[in-house]
Design a protein around this nucleic acid. Sequence first.
DNA 1: GTTTTCACTGGGCAATGTGTTCAGTCGTAC
DNA 2: GTACGACTGAACACATTGCCCAGTGAAAAC
Lengths: 156, 156
Amino acid sequence: MAIDQLDGRIIVLLAREPRLGVLEMSRRLGVARGTVQARLDRLQSNGVIRGFGPQVDPAALGYPVTAFATLQIRQGQGADVRAHLATVPEVLELHTTTGSGDMLCRLVARSNADLQRVIDRVVGFDGIVRAATAIVMENPVPLRIIPLVEQAALQE
Amino acid sequence: MAIDQLDGRIIVLLAREPRLGVLEMSRRLGVARGTVQARLDRLQSNGVIRGFGPQVDPAALGYPVTAFATLQIRQGQGADVRAHLATVPEVLELHTTTGSGDMLCRLVARSNADLQRVIDRVVGFDGIVRAATAIVMENPVPLRIIPLVEQAALQE
DNA sequence: GTTTTCACTGGGCAATGTGTTCAGTCGTAC
DNA sequence: GTACGACTGAACACATTGCCCAGTGAAAAC
């Protein structure tokens, strides 16, 4: 579960240049190929590296509008609401949070007008008492992991 | 910018089994290798596929606590706050949203106690007027893209 | 109606990387 | 002092990659 500095360098290198093969990585890092391979296997079976799925940009897919919605759920309806939201493709992410039956979800839409349709579909469900939506205007820090990995690697 | 069904199948296949090579994908999809290669190149230069970076699980790195913080920013201090938050490794993501100088950020921490330290560091900055934090308890829908890709592929 | 354009096919080629195995070295924990 | 675990450097067969090509078909332009 703890990663050392070599693990950290492997992850950071891979994050910067994902197309690198094991052989090229071992050259860059100055270690044997088998070492890199063993580390990668370990990181993946550890669950530290979940996978190498393609990072898709919703904006490029035609969904340039992102929003976060805070939902207040009627007591005992949590499971139903979760199931409902899971069926909406525009719901990219859903969290339950502290607070009385609160959830937070990330939405995307084709336009501000389309966002209204998405929100209607999201909140058009019985268990949802109230919804507050915040539309994203800028994304100064896109989802990142490198600084955290470097931090974790230093603390060994 | 629009993707067709073959593009969609490529992305979905790649999301499910990221280790697949171009040759194996062409076999599974029943098209020529060159076609898959050309589509992938196009998807990447389009920006639809941003990359294939490793998906790192913060929990496995020792940061099992996730939280979302809503920050209210003093007028005109936005740029400074952004720069400040970018230096905090535990800030994984930052958005500016509608609302009077509001920002939303995703945080991780080693424990609930550690979250206090992170929040102190985040809000210990002049331009931040107020902060409201919601701790994530469950994550019923982890960040996903496949349903949206399928939706986009159908609409052609 | 003819021609151009474009994407896809199916094949071949050299070069490279992969998965795997092995023996040898080093430091550390017992 | 010995056993263990991790790393090294090398070898091997094999599959895949990047790149090229000519041929086909359909749709768009003329």
